[in-house]
């Protein structure tokens, strides 16, 4: 009994992940077209959140540049749509975001704390307005139509990007780079004197995290059909990623995923069912979560949390 339980515990996580992947991988066979679109949306937010976590959680650098990388992806898709096959467009978007993030990272990752957050926020606005100026004064258009793909294809592309992202995050956490990132988050000076090339590690992981936001942007653009700089470079995508990650909990691998899923689903549900009180309910849920579950939704998985919420005191 005891050994059976132990081996189940060891296998439980991989088995659950595989079951989840199987369910997601066959979604279009049993779910309604609406469900497929909704799940695509949710997965897009999971990608933005997990890619943000990849760099920002271990290092403590709060990046608000997610929307910039997402937007670069969207515009790559808008510009190249129809000229290249979709997978190549998505790859190009990933590379473009990587290059942008590497450049920005090399220049700005020496900024600490709130300065870095401000700069990355500024980046979104900067690119948006540069693009707007370029489109209006050089190409003479304000928005662009994007060659569209069908919803099931987009769903599977988004799912594919997410699976690669999760594998990347998992492998990074277990690798030398993950150890280096953790050390950098704990103390950058000490990390450097311990032989870690701090700027190289930070820049590389920052750029790597941007690949996924860019790729997701390129895929999503094909569903939206029309984009302009305001739609593509909407800083809400940056804030939402941070909020979802914190909502779910940064302490554990599953936290941000759970946060993004619950957050995005709740929003979808509230907007469609209760359009008038949507913001009110959403705000209340966030406030209550932060108050009672400061470490995010994953805290619900701990027994001590339930005891505390029922009013019992923690044994000292």
């Amino acid at each position: 009994m005891q050994t059976g339980k132990a081996s189940w515990l060891r296998l439980r996580t991989p088995v659950l992940w595989l079951a989840l992947l199987a369910a997601m991988g066959t979604l279009s066979l049993y779910a309604s077209p609406y469900t497929v679109i909704m799940v695509t949306n949710i997965l897009m937010y999971v990608i933005l959140t997990v890619s943000w976590v990849l760099f920002s959680a271990p290092t403590g650098y709060i990046s608000l540049a997610t929307a910039a990388f997402f937007g670069v992806g969207i515009y790559t898709s808008a510009t190249l749509g129809g000229q290249l096959p979709l997978p190549l467009i998505i790859l190009t978007a990933g590379v473009a975001s990587f290059v942008l993030a590497a450049l920005v990272g090399a220049l700005t990752l020496r900024l600490k704390g709130v300065y870095f957050a401000f700069f990355t926020f500024g980046l979104v606005e900067l690119i948006k307005h540069l693009l707007l100026w370029y489109e209006v004064s050089v190409t003479g258009v304000r928005g662009r139509f994007v060659v569209s793909a069908d919803n099931v294809t987009i769903y599977y592309i988004i799912l594919g990007i997410l699976v690669i992202l999760l594998l990347t995050s998992y492998l990074i956490r277990r690798s030398r780079v993950g150890l280096a990132l953790q050390a950098i988050g704990e103390g950058e000076d000490a990390a450097a004197h311990t032989g870690i090339n701090v700027s190289a590690v930070k820049t590389f992981v920052f750029a790597l995290s941007a690949v996924f936001a860019g790729a997701a942007g390129a895929a999503m653009a094909t569903r939206w059909g029309y984009v302009d700089p305001y739609i593509a470079f909407d800083y809400l995508f940056s804030f939402t990623a941070v909020a979802m990650a914190v909502f779910g909990g940064l302490g554990r691998f599953e936290g941000p995923i759970l946060g993004a899923v619950v957050f995005a689903f709740l929003r979808e549900l509230l907007i469609t069912r209760f359009p008038y009180v949507y913001m009110l309910v959403m705000g209340s849920v966030l406030v209550v979560t932060i108050l009672y579950l400061p470490q995010g939704l994953v805290q619900l998985a701990q027994k001590s949390t339930w005891r505390r919420l029922r009013g019992h005191r923690e044994p000292a």
């Binding site: 953790q182 050390a183 988050g185 704990e186 103390g187 000076d189 000490a190 990390a191 004197h193």
Partner: peptide
């Protein structure tokens, strides 16, 4: 080197 004010990786 080591540091005058200790700089261990506290959370590790």
């Amino acid at each position: 080197r080591t540091f005058q004010s200790v700089k261990v990786f506290g959370g590790m």
